[in-house]
Design a protein around this nucleic acid. Structure first.
Length: 506
RNA sequence: GGGCCUCUAGCUCAGUUGGUUAGAGCAACGGACUUUUAAUCCGUGGGUCGUCGGUUCGAUCCCGACGGGGCCUACCA
């Protein structure tokens, strides 16, 4: 066996015995240590007599003097993230899941020669270890546990990456569990996301909304225009779609009398992925009976401002690059047509002909071919206005022909009561005064289906059951949808793949 | 979908204008060390240079295909 072990000349023979030649050296060495630990005891004990968490000990001794022995005994566990072994005194830094750290000290006179030697031989960076002993401070003032006893809590087989260089982007995404161990910011983002979710739910609770869950597997995909993921049900022998939006089911709930309803759950869209798009993403949708697009805009502003305040204690959020994202105050509402007219220097109204819109579009090199005038208006608006919207802004009153689920404006012709919320130039949320007239809704769907027949793969299918629900009477309502991942991006300045703990990778 | 770039040790990266034995720091292994904290000191090992094919006396390096990743672009209510 030793002649096959690829030149590991000075390795301890006990360990070398267990080397397998096709494994990386460090893994083989650690597997041998695992065997040895199992001979001595248990490399993965089911339970340990823990009395304190690292956080508790840290909190209990906020400012001890240098070189103090408290006489207090604790027993705790953590993952080793730094190790410094000397001849008769060993140091290790233990890290809790919270990221809190504490130093463990193992001295010859406390644990004895045998256990000290076993510590030096068998304990590696990354291992979970159990330490019981006295709370002290070292001669350098570091809060420490001076061990009477140590036990392996869980042996690590793979070496932890170098803590002193940044991990590569790809490694971080593919090995998020490692990223979470070694990078404080990764852990922090998970904590922020959880707190944001709690805050959103708290605000909804204050406003008397009920949280529901609606189907993700759907026989007809609707509520948005995007290409769906397809799958197949064996039991029903039928094609199913992963939902692209929960909208049509939440509206059924409102028809049923769930007057204030929201859902936070995953949507799936079979489109390109980039810094702001993920094939699966968390979506918040909310509907409020007897509200309209103004009340739902107020609610949206409140949700985001409360989240910033609850999580960061301020509306002036500091982003990854140091920039301040100012979410405070009352967010302005600007008209899409008016802001476009102002920015492009000619008056654009819902009555502007598609020929004129095409002319303007090609003059600024927007090359699209689309049958709907509204599409051109939106493209032109994005070209002329979107980039300048840094502060949170509601863009209101969209073209009717691209918004099939939205009711016509109460006084302006050719537009619908719809807004998009832009924050730092990204579309953050969208809200409507919902279309509740079943006859008009049917007409809109028929137009969409006609488009689909003309080859638009994103046009909605006719959902007869949804129309039937509307025929039972949906109260006038405001509704909104907001990307949760994008909200996290707005609050942190990170890319979407950093706000999602485990983004899809090939 | 189109264009450009990239893949070297467990991790982060050098490097080879095509040439015998591909380097560094951390990590690992052997040794010394009872106050370290990116510990230090002495010594050692670790690589199919993404994969397959081509050119060549010789390829990690040049060329091609494929795979992974990134950026730009297109698409994305």
């Amino acid at each position: 066996m030793s002649q096959e072990s690829t030149g590991s000349g000075n390795v301890n023979p006990d360990i070398e015995q267990d080397l397998e030649q096709d494994l990386p050296e460090q893994i083989a060495v650690r597997l041998a240590k695992r065997e040895r630990l199992n001979e001595l005891g248990d490399a993965y004990p089911v339970t340990l007599p823990i009395t304190h968490t690292i956080d508790q000990v840290r909190a209990s001794y906020p400012d001890l003097e240098i070189d103090v022995a408290t006489g207090d005994k604790v027993a705790l566990a953590g993952r080793i993230v730094f190790q410094r072994n000397t001849g008769k005194l060993c140091f290790a830094t233990l890290q809790a899941g919270s990221g809190q750290r504490i130093q463990a000290m193992l001295s010859l006179d406390k644990v004895g020669q045998e256990r000290l030697d076993e510590w030096k031989e068998l304990v590696d960076l990354g291992d979970h270890v159990f330490i019981s002993g006295e709370v002290i401070t070292s001669k350098r003032g570091e809060l420490s546990i001076l061990a009477d006893e140590w036990l392996m809590a869980a042996k690590t087989i793979r070496p932890l990456p170098n803590l002193h260089n940044e991990l590569g982007e790809e490694y971080r995404v593919r090995h998020r569990y490692v990223d979470l161990i070694v990078r404080d910011r990764a852990r922090e983002v998970v904590q922020i996301r959880s707190k944001v979710m709690q805050s959103l739910r708290r605000t909804f609770e204050q406003e008397a909304f009920l949280e529901v869950e609606t189907p993700m597997l759907q026989t007809i995909h609707g509520g948005a225009s995007a290409r769906p993921f397809k799958t197949h049900s064996n039991a029903f022998d039928t094609e199913l779609f992963l939902r692209i939006a929960p909208e049509l089911f939440l509206k059924r709930a409102v028809v049923g009398g769930i007057d204030r309803v929201f859902e936070i759950n995953r949507n799936f869209r079979n489109e390109g992925a980039d810094r702001t798009h993920s094939p699966e993403f968390a979506m918040l949708e909310a509907y409020q009976a007897y509200g309209d697009y103004n009340t739902i805009a107020d609610l949206t502003q409140k949700l985001i401002q409360n989240a910033a305040m609850d999580v960061f204690g301020t509306h002036q959020v500091v982003l990854e690059d140091g920039e301040i994202n100012d979410l405070g105050g009352n967010w302005p509402r600007i008209s899409m047509y008016e802001s476009l007219s102002e920015a492009c220097g000619q008056t654009i109204t819902p009555q502007t002909s598609i020929e004129d819109l095409k002319k303007l579009a090609s003059s600024v090199e927007i090359e699209i071919e689309h049958p709907l005038a509204g599409k051109y208006v939106e493209e032109l608006w994005e070209h002329f206005v979107k980039g300048d919207l840094v502060k949170p802004t509601f863009v209101i009153d969209f073209p009717v022909d691209t918004s099939p689920l939205t009711r016509d404006h109460r006084s302006k012709s050719g537009v619908v009561e719809k807004w998009d919320l832009y924050i730092r130039g990204y579309e953050q949320a969208t809200g409507y005064s919902e279309l509740v007239d079943p006859v008009i809704q049917r007409q809109r769907f028929v137009e969409q289906v006609t488009l689909a027949a003309a080859g638009d793969p994103e046009a909605m299918k006719l959902d007869e059951d949804f129309l039937k629900a509307l025929e039972f009477g949906m109260p006038p309502s405001g509704g909104m949808g907001m990307g949760i991942d994008r909200l996290l991006m707005s609050l942190t300045g990170l890319g979407i793949r950093e706000t999602i703990m485990f983004p899809l990778v090939k």
